[in-house]
């Protein structure tokens, strides 16, 4: 990882980030070693954890081993998309497509 990458560690809030141990949720559309980074989305009632974001392209949940914050980069392997975490007007964290 490059320390100069603007999509990594873009903000530096004072509180340390929460860490998460990822488990395999059965998302079988990527190789086994990557399955823990994804899970299926259960629809609008599905409450995302602080380390999760919804891919707006293919509507699966992307998971990280750490709490997500604005400016973070995440990847959706299902649609090969690079995403950036942003804060929506409503105050929620959202994933925005970079490409």
């Amino acid at each position: 990882m490059s320390s100069e990458d603007p999509l990594q560690e873009a903000d530096t809030p004072s509180a340390p980030r929460q860490r998460f141990v990822l488990d395999d949720r059965g998302f079988n559309e990527v190789p086994k070693k990557y399955r823990k980074f994804y899970r299926t989305w259960d629809g609008p009632e599905d409450v995302l954890a602080p380390n999760e974001a919804l891919c707006p392209v293919c509507k699966i949940v992307v998971r990280s081993s750490r709490e997500l914050r604005p400016g973070d980069r995440i990847y959706c392997m299902a649609c090969m998309t690079r995403l950036q975490i942003v804060r929506s007007d409503a105050g929620h964290l959202e994933a925005q497509v970079i490409y």
Partner: peptide, 20 residues
Amino acid sequence: VDLHGLEPEAFLEEVHSFEF
């Protein structure tokens, strides 16, 4: 692997691969 820590080029290489 820290998937989201991969450089974009490394990510693209991985998801385009036959093995993936």
